[in-house]
């Protein structure tokens, strides 16, 4: 079998039932590589190795005999999945602040009256309880009496 560089720029090395290529971690970080690998574990045997600093070598081995085209397709699908996982991660990160805001709002409104409402209620209660001038009011005298 052969080494080939297809149009997507991923250099693949083919062997019997096996395709091997490397992933640059400065483009796809390890979480992304692991996310893609997870989806291929059911389809084939996946082995990762450290080719160099910041480069992960991916070896995909089919469970049954496979043609060169099938091996190239397998590598291509993995490359697509890398892109998919990277996009999912990016969206997840960009939405993180929005998720935090929505969660905070939900917790805030779930705790009952707002802080301002509680403060106003406390001030009202204090005002009712205290009489700073201490003016005596005869109990006989009633308004209009």
């Amino acid at each position: 079998m052969s080494d080939e560089t297809p149009d997507n720029g991923v250099t693949t090395e083919l062997g019997e039932r096996r395709v091997r290529f490397s992933v640059d971690e400065s483009i796809y970080d390890l979480d992304v590589v692991m996310g893609a690998a997870y989806l291929f574990i059911d389809r084939c045997y996946v082995y990762l190795d450290r080719e160099a600093d910041r480069r992960v070598q991916v070896v995909l081995r089919t469970r049954a005999a496979a043609s060169e085209d099938e091996l190239h397709a397998l590598a291509g699908h993995f490359a697509n999945e890398l892109l998919n996982q990277a996009l999912r991660k990016q969206i997840g990160e960009s939405n993180a602040r929005l998720r935090e805001f929505i969660m905070a709002r939900a917790l805030f409104s779930a705790e009952g009256p707002s802080t301002i409402d509680r403060l106003l209620a406390e001030l009202d209660a204090e005002e009712m309880a205290s009489d700073d001038l201490d003016i005596p009011v005869p109990w006989e005298k009633t308004p209009g009496g």
């Binding site: 979480d31 692991m34 996310g35 690998a37 997870y38 574990i41 045997y45 996946v46 082995y47 990762l48 081995r61």
Partner: peptide, 16 residues
């Protein structure tokens, strides 16, 4: 060898 390697990766991903 293949199955053990696959399972080691599977367990690693789950743990991560």
């Amino acid at each position: 060898g293949d199955e053990l390697s696959n399972h080691a990766l599977f367990e690693t991903i789950l743990a991560r």
